[in-house]
Amino acid sequence: MPGPKDLDPSSSPRALLGAELRHARENAGLSQDALGEALFVSGSFIGQLEAGTRRMQPEIAAKLDEILGTNGFFERNCKAANKSKYPDHFAEAAEAEAVATAIKEYAPLLIPGVLQTEAYAREVFRAYQPTATEDVIDGLVEARLARSHLLDDPTKPLFWAVLDEAVLRRKVGGAGVMAEALGYVAELARRHRIIVQVLPFEAGAHASSNGALRLMAFDDAPPLAYLEVLGTGQLEDNPAAVARYELSYDLVRASAASPQESLALIESVAEDYAHEDRHP
């Protein structure tokens, strides 16, 4: 029987690589758990590779070829599947986000990337990289704006954001930039495309005081959590850890203002910024 053909990088290579992995695993008569045990990873991790929600790293690819007898297929093709326009620490999370059915995010300092306007994103990247060339900043902004296409479908994925009040009050790029940015978030909420809540300062300490949190759910793979700090990020798939983060998000959401109250506050703050911009 002929072996698998090399993948075409132009046709969703990660999804194709995952499909080939499922085919090879089933041909070998192995369950996801059994293959995971041989690789010293969880069965859920194998499921995420097959669903295309996790990256196949070269060392994993080489072991898969050895266990499944696929003659170097996975090692040859994982490089093409891992090509990304995003920074290395965020690439896997961004690509998982693209196939998620639901995204829930707590943002402590900045508007979530998917919801950012061009001007707001440019100010954020310039602050992170003050000496970068304009071409570098342009590329980062372009990649971030491309993520907003996640919201092109009128209903999927479900996007639920809890914004700390600091997100509204932190003047990124000046009053005009903030008026536009918050106005865009409010517009998405008004169109019922996203659900947004604001966690007010008066809520005090809360279950996600340590930082940002993003949760992603999928039709055919276990959920993931993503935690990010300056210059690095961690994608978590351990079921117990993800369950703990889901509880943290639920507690934060319970402490936040209602969606209706939150929308009114966002629009009020946006109007204050717009007035400031008109009358500096």
Rank of each mutant, 00 (worst) to 15 (best):
residue 15 A to F: 01
residue 39 L to N: 04
residue 37 E to W: 08
residue 180 E to A: 15
residue 40 F to Y: 11
residue 133 T to V: 08
residue 176 G to L: 03
residue 256 A to C: 06
residue 239 P to Q: 03
residue 205 A to F: 13
residue 267 E to Q: 15
residue 145 L to R: 02
residue 268 S to P: 01
residue 76 R to E: 11
residue 128 Y to R: 11
residue 135 D to S: 10
residue 66 E to V: 07
residue 224 L to Y: 05
residue 212 A to K: 00
residue 182 L to V: 11
residue 243 A to D: 02
residue 53 T to G: 04
residue 208 S to I: 09
residue 101 T to L: 05
residue 14 R to S: 09
residue 226 Y to N: 13
residue 265 L to N: 03
residue 173 G to V: 14
residue 58 P to M: 06
residue 218 F to E: 10
residue 81 A to M: 08
residue 150 L to A: 07
residue 7 L to T: 00
residue 208 S to V: 13
residue 206 H to L: 06
residue 41 V to D: 00
residue 163 L to T: 04
residue 187 E to L: 12
residue 125 F to H: 06
residue 159 F to N: 08
residue 243 A to W: 00
residue 271 E to P: 02
residue 72 G to P: 07
residue 156 K to R: 15
residue 234 Q to K: 15
residue 181 A to Y: 06
residue 155 T to R: 12
residue 131 T to M: 11
residue 266 I to L: 07
residue 150 L to F: 03
residue 62 A to K: 07
residue 169 R to Q: 14
residue 78 C to R: 03
residue 167 V to E: 02
residue 223 P to L: 13
residue 255 S to A: 15
residue 276 E to F: 01
residue 162 V to P: 01
residue 118 E to T: 05
residue 108 P to F: 03
residue 113 G to K: 01
residue 132 A to W: 05
residue 183 G to A: 02
residue 96 A to P: 05
residue 172 V to T: 14
residue 50 E to F: 14
residue 128 Y to S: 15
residue 135 D to W: 00
residue 57 Q to L: 13
residue 126 R to E: 12
residue 216 M to E: 11
residue 252 V to G: 11
residue 18 G to M: 00
residue 270 A to P: 03
residue 35 L to C: 09
residue 20 E to I: 08
residue 157 P to K: 08
residue 43 G to A: 12
